[in-house]
C-alpha cells in the first residue's frame, strides 16, 4: 500500500518538475536553446543561446498544508544549487516549489500564494535572514544571493486542477502570439505527451524548437475558411469544406506550390508587416494566375474560385504565422 502511494507521489513529483521546466522555459523563451530535466537530482538546467546556464531545483510537496518538509526541501535545494554553481556560466539559480509556505514562516505565508517568481531581494526581510542563516550554517559559499530566485508554482489537486496554474501561465505566454486562442489545453497535452515517453527514465532533454513547432501547427491547424463562404448556401458551404479539405491542405503544404505563391507575393507586396488588406488585394488580383496548378475535375467555376482563394490565403497565413512565432520566441 505504502509502495503504490509512493509511486503515484513520485509520478506527481516528476510531473511537477516537468511542468516547472516548461514554465521556466516560457519565461526565458527568447534566450533558451535547450532544457535538461533530471528526475533523480531534481535538477532543471536551461542552456541559453549565449552559452550561459540557468540552474533550478524543483521540490514537490504532496499535501498543500503539510509544512513538515518544506524547510528540509529548501535546504536540499539550496545545497544542490550551490554544488552546481561552481560552473562559471551560471547566471541565475532558481528554487521552484509548489508549497505556499516555502520558508515555513506562518507570518509571511500570504506573501507566497498563487504563482510567484521572486528575486531574493524581494523576499520579506525575515525570510531573507532565514536563507542567509541556512547559507552560512551549511557553508554554501558558491551561492550568489543576487542571482537567487524563489518561484512558487501551485500544483495541487487532481485532473484539471493540478495543471490550472501551469495553464494560466501558458495562456499569458500565448497572449503575445496571434491567433492562439483555444490552443492552450491541447498544446499542454502535446508537450506533456512528447516527454512522457521518457518519463520512465526521469531524464529528458527538450529543444526549444520542439516546444515551438506544436504552437505553429496548432495555430495553422484551424484556418478560418469562412472569409469567402459568406452568403453561400450553407449546404454548399459544408460540401466545399468536406469535399475539398484534403485537397486544400495538400496544396497548402506542397512546397513547390506554396513557394510559388509566397515568392509571387514577396515580389509584389513590399510591406514588412503584412496587413489583412495586402493579403486580400494580392489574392483578389492574382488567384487566377495559380489556377494552372489546380486539377479538380468537374468543379463549378465559382467554387473553384473560393477554393483557390482559400488555398492562397492559407499559404500566406501559414508563412506569416511561422515567421511571427519564430520571431517572438527568437527561434
Amino acid at each position: 500500500m505504502a509502495k503504490t502511494r509512493n509511486a503515484s507521489a513520485s509520478k506527481k513529483a516528476w510531473d511537477f518538475q516537468f511542468n516547472a521546466a516548461i514554465i521556466l522555459t516560457l519565461s526565458h523563451i527568447k534566450d533558451v536553446d535547450q532544457i535538461k530535466v533530471e528526475g533523480e537530482s531534481e535538477d532543471i538546467e536551461l542552456y541559453l543561446n549565449d552559452n550561459s546556464v540557468i540552474l533550478s531545483q524543483a521540490k514537490f510537496v504532496e499535501i498543500i498544508d503539510d509544512y513538515r518538509n518544506v524547510l528540509r526541501n529548501l535546504i536540499d535545494a539550496l545545497s544542490g544549487l550551490n554544488k552546481e554553481s561552481i560552473s562559471t556560466n551560471v547566471t541565475k539559480t532558481i528554487y521552484i516549489t509548489n508549497t505556499p509556505n516555502p520558508l515555513n514562516n506562518m507570518r509571511t505565508i500570504g506573501f507566497y500564494s498563487g504563482f510567484k517568481n521572486l528575486e531574493f531581494k524581494e523576499l520579506p526581510s525575515s525570510d531573507q535572514k532565514k536563507i542567509e542563516n541556512i547559507i552560512s550554517k551549511s557553508k554554501l559559499s558558491e551561492l550568489n544571493l543576487d542571482r537567487l530566485e524563489i518561484w512558487i508554482l501551485p500544483f495541487h489537486g487532481t485532473g484539471d486542477n493540478l495543471f490550472s496554474s501551469v495553464r494560466e501561465q501558458l495562456y499569458y505566454f500565448l497572449e503575445d502570439i496571434e491567433d492562439t486562442r483555444g490552443i492552450g489545453n491541447k498544446l499542454l497535452k502535446i508537450w506533456q505527451n512528447k516527454y512522457s515517453e521518457n518519463a520512465s527514465h526521469r531524464k529528458v532533454k527538450i529543444k526549444k524548437k520542439e516546444l515551438v513547432w506544436p504552437i505553429i501547427v496548432l495555430v495553422c491547424g484551424n484556418p478560418s475558411i469562412d472569409v469567402y463562404l459568406d452568403g453561400i448556401d450553407p449546404a454548399v458551404q459544408s460540401q466545399l469544406k468536406v469535399s475539398y479539405a484534403a485537397f486544400m491542405n495538400t496544396m497548402t503544404e506542397k512546397f513547390e506550390f506554396a513557394n510559388k505563391v509566397i515568392s509571387t507575393y514577396n515580389e509584389q507586396v513590399k510591406s514588412v508587416i503584412p496587413l489583412q488588406k495586402d493579403f486580400d488585394d494580392f489574392i483578389e488580383n492574382n488567384w487566377t494566375d495559380f489556377l494552372e496548378d489546380f486539377k479538380i475535375p468537374e468543379i463549378e467555376e465559382s467554387h473553384l474560385e473560393i477554393i483557390a482563394k482559400l488555398i492562397i490565403r492559407n499559404i500566406l497565413t501559414k508563412r506569416f504565422v511561422i515567421q511571427s512565432v519564430k520571431k517572438k520566441v527568437n527561434l
Partner: peptide
C-alpha cells in the same frame, strides 16, 4: 528559403 520551415511544420 522556407524549405526547412515547411519540413518542420
Amino acid at each position: 528559403k522556407g524549405f526547412s520551415d515547411d519540413e518542420d511544420y
